[in-house]
Design a protein around this nucleic acid. Structure first.
Lengths: 153, 153
DNA sequence: GATTAGGTTCTGTATTTGCAGAACCAACAG
DNA sequence: CTGTTGGTTCTGCAAATACAGAACCTAATC
């Protein structure tokens, strides 16, 4: 597949989006490429060529993506190349994990509340509210997916 | 206020939690200190002393936190010191912003769908599902806060 | 008008990151 | 057993980060 300027520009933007999430630049670009590539499966050297980076960098980035379970490769009979693809089917679990991740702050809020004195009741009260909300939020996550499934019909 | 080992250890852990979110180390430690400190308001040099860092580092970190609207300072009559505090009251807006932020990926998914051919319908279909869910999710966010308020009584 | 208190801005630097390039390895092909 | 393909691991470096320390600024104080 030959990438147009539009493709490349979109890949870059997807790249910086993922950089903001803490990933290293190339990892974000690879995610972009795997999303944009029409077959969804892209060989190692196609990645090297399309992104214009070294084999070593691609190798490390793919190892990382596989470790994070965001990417897999398949092979074809009589072909030693690996064809990499995103695990798009896992979007539910991945998104759920992200939500639980940002709710993780509750653990710290609760520890903070245990350690704090009563010197600033208003502060404590707001923190307690936040903690309660986070508890509520965590319980709501599975229901959210269920409601989505139902309204889909 | 004198910090115990327990306080300090909790501050460190809150620090690394925020580092994982992309913040620089000291910024995370300051958030931890402001959370743990019993008055909730902490002077500039109390931060310097308790965290054992330079004035310049603290100054930059506080500038950053104020720019991000996570922190404010107040002053007291006849006292030139600034007393810094977290904007704990903003937890709703902050959390909502975080949720919208992770749903931002929808924008890219949709762009990707516009650019993709029909060569891999299964892939496209799953991406479309994900996009639909993200749209649903965004609409659910305000309802979530409402439901929380109601069940609180 | 010199000094001090409370910060801020500038300059330098140790550490970390992110990648390139080369050496390397394993499997298969001739 | 030699060469080639497909990829990994090792070594090194340029750039970015995150902070220290010093110089600096500003308002109050003597």
């Amino acid at each position: 597949m030959i990438l147009t300027t539009k493709h490349k520009e979109l890949i870059e933007r997807i790249g910086v989006f993922h950089e903001h999430k803490g990933m290293q630049p190339l990892v974000g670009r690879i995610i972009g490429l795997l999303l944009v590539h029409e077959e969804g499966e892209v060989s190692f050297d196609e990645i090297v060529e399309n992104l214009g980076v070294s084999k070593s960098a691609v190798s490390n980035a793919l190892t990382f993506l596989q470790a994070k379970d965001r990417c897999v490769y398949s092979t074809r009979p009589g072909d030693r190349k690996r064809y990499f693809a995103l695990k798009v089917s896992d979007w539910r679990e991945d998104f759920e994990k992200e939500l639980l991740d940002i709710a993780e702050i509750q653990k710290f809020i609760d520890e903070v509340l245990e350690v704090r004195t009563q010197k600033n009741p208003e502060f404590n009260c707001k923190m307690k509210d936040f903690s309660n909300f986070l508890g509520f939020f965590k319980k709501e996550i599975p229901l959210l997916f269920e409601r989505f499934k139902n309204q889909q019909g």
